[in-house]
């Protein structure tokens, strides 16, 4: 059974369509990237899938069950990451906060927090508060929080938008490693065409607002991927050209 099934999904804000008609399926363990022009409705789509926004039309199903309200075993990395951190908790406290309701022991929680912070390179900042961090560091905290949670389905909205190129490459590889070891299914929104090809098993290209799926591309690149060699292959170059053409259309 598929992990996630979106069928004929549409959402309108006060009568104005933001997402018009989106259908796709994500299999368990798959990493699917969504690319599309700014303002086309990508965040709206993710919020519908997360059960935060009731869709105007169509349905979202997880494991075959229709989503009404927030489903279990889900984590979201929001686009406006700074507003999603608790300002009165430390970095470690923020990562730990959602773990309490997952039935983990104190020791397990602590080790997950330490592990996740070391993954994103923030071990040193564990005791700091969000307002003491740069935007890129805050974004990494919200990524660490989602990874420590080990959800079955991870939704990421432009998760690497505020970090430098090298950190971005490291975080891309981190997501690939963690999803392989934890068996996570990932749905990731990005502006960056190269990033979508590098990360994904499949790329969904969305149209201008209101969004529809213009194209689904299977990324037949071998795993594990490598920042230098993978990006140099003919397949990679062919796919990114194809996506760029679709978006331009």
């Amino acid at each position: 059974m598929s992990m996630l099934e979106v069928a004929g999904l549409g959402h309108a804000y006060g009568g104005v369509d933001a997402v018009s008609d989106v259908s796709f399926v994500v299999e368990p363990g798959e990493l699917v990237c969504i690319v599309g022009p700014s303002g086309c409705g990508k965040s709206t789509l993710l919020r519908c899938i997360a059960g935060l926004l009731p869709p105007t039309r169509g349905t979202v199903s997880l494991h075959g069950d229709r989503v009404v309200g927030v489903p279990s075993d889900l984590a979201v990395v929001f686009q406006d990451y700074s507003r999603s951190l608790l300002p009165w908790r430390t970095v470690a406290g923020n990562v730990e906060f959602p773990l309490r309701d997952r039935g983990l022991s104190t020791v397990e929680r602590r080790s997950r927090v330490e592990e996740a912070l070391s993954w994103v390179g923030l071990s040193e900042a564990a005791g700091k508060h969000p307002f003491e961090l740069s935007g890129g560091m805050q974004q990494r905290v919200s990524i660490a929080r989602a990874l420590a949670y080990r959800p079955a389905l991870m939704l990421m909205d432009e998760p690497f938008a505020s970090v430098d190129a090298q950190t971005r490459a490291d975080l891309e590889d981190l997501v690939l490693t963690v999803r392989a070891s934890a068996g996570m299914t990932v749905l990731l929104v990005t502006h960056d065409i190269d990033e979508s090809v590098y990360l994904a098993d499949r790329v969904l290209v969305l149209s201008q607002s209101p969004a529809t799926v213009v194209e689904t591309l299977k990324v037949d690149l071998s795993s594990p991927r490598d920042q230098i060699t993978t990006r140099g292959t003919d397949t990679f170059v062919r796919l990114r050209t194809e996506i760029a053409r679709q978006i331009r259309r």
């Binding site: 935060l52 889900l74 984590a75 999603s84 959602p98 309490r100 309701d101």
Partner: peptide, 19 residues
């Protein structure tokens, strides 16, 4: 956005109030 975040992580009602 803060409330949505903790709702996504299925934080209990009580901890949403207190935390």
């Amino acid at each position: 956005r803060l409330l949505e975040t903790v709702r996504c992580f299925r934080v209990s009602r009580w901890r949403r109030l207190v935390g």
